[in-house]
């Protein structure tokens, strides 16, 4: 598993500037436009400034987006055109090791994106020591969406298939999970829908750890993320193996 992760890290070393651009600079542009720009017109939301409110959401969407995209497009290329996995399977590396190695790498990349956003936004006054507490939660969130991405590559027919998961799941989740607006102020049934999915739990938890008092009930959010991770990994690993060895 480590060797699969390492293969990606070695490639990342060659191309990190491109990676840095989309994993870190893109979220920072959102932070500029929404946090600093749009947020200027809102006095407070859930007892905090809109910038703080949005920053917590942005860390989570960055973690989700980067891990998901890293697990889908490049991995689908490795699975099909590049035949990287077929080559790995000529060696003692197993499909499970490839699956978890890739998942771990996509989550690492997601976390690197989060770290980049945190470090740069700290320069603009958003430094928060509790970041070191939310870091494992954000990594867990990256793992959840990396495993979701791995499921998608295992069932995709071509690159167009990812339009369904991106436009049908990832983008809507980034909108409805309490990133831009408070889930406390929307109708109950809409709130329930938002909390069916993992992102809302992560956003809520990260925001609480960064700016509020942590309660015992907040552990439920971690349990939900872990449950998603276990279920997605189990399903993904089976589908992935079936796709590569038949």
């Amino acid at each position: 598993m480590y060797n699969v992760w390492l293969r990606n890290f070695l490639f990342f070393r060659k191309t990190f500037m491109v990676s840095l651009f989309w994993t870190t600079l893109e979220p920072l542009m959102f932070l500029g436009a929404f946090g600093f720009g749009f947020g200027h017109y809102i006095s407070s939301i859930e007892g905090m400034s809109f910038l703080q409110f949005y920053f917590a959401g942005l860390l989570c969407t960055t973690s989700m987006m980067v891990a998901y995209f890293e697990a889908t497009y490049p991995n689908y290329t490795k699975m099909t055109h590049q035949k990287t996995y077929a080559a790995m399977l000529l060696t003692p590396v197993s499909t499970q090791q490839i699956f978890f190695g890739e998942m771990l790498w996509a989550a690492t990349k997601g976390f690197l994106g989060v770290l980049g956003v945190f470090l740069i936004s700290s320069l603009f006054g958003l430094f928060n020591p509790n970041f070191f507490v939310v870091a494992p939660i954000l990594f867990l969130l990256s793992l959840v969406f990396a495993s979701f991405g791995m499921i998608m590559i295992s069932i995709a027919k071509n690159y167009d298939s990812f339009v369904f998961s991106t436009s049908g799941v990832i983008v809507p989740l980034s909108m409805i999970s309490g990133t831009y607006f408070s889930l406390e102020e929307i109708p109950y049934y809409l709130k329930t829908v938002a909390y069916i999915f993992p992102l809302a739990h992560a956003v809520r938890l990260v925001r609480t750890v960064l700016y509020r008092e942590l309660g015992l009930f907040d552990l439920v959010h971690i349990a939900v993320l872990l449950a998603y991770l276990v279920i997605f990994s189990m399903i993904g690993q089976r589908l992935f193996t079936k796709k590569l060895v038949n």
Binding site: N3, R7, L10, K14, Q82, K83, T84, A86, P92
Partner: peptide
């Protein structure tokens, strides 16, 4: 030696061999 070479196009010739050596521990 598979029918399609399945070489890792993200890497050089030497790196391809070293990666494979890693996969073989």
């Amino acid at each position: 030696v598979p029918q399609e070479d399945c070489l890792d196009t993200d890497f050089s010739a030497l790196e391809n061999l070293l990666l494979f050596a890693r996969y073989h521990n």
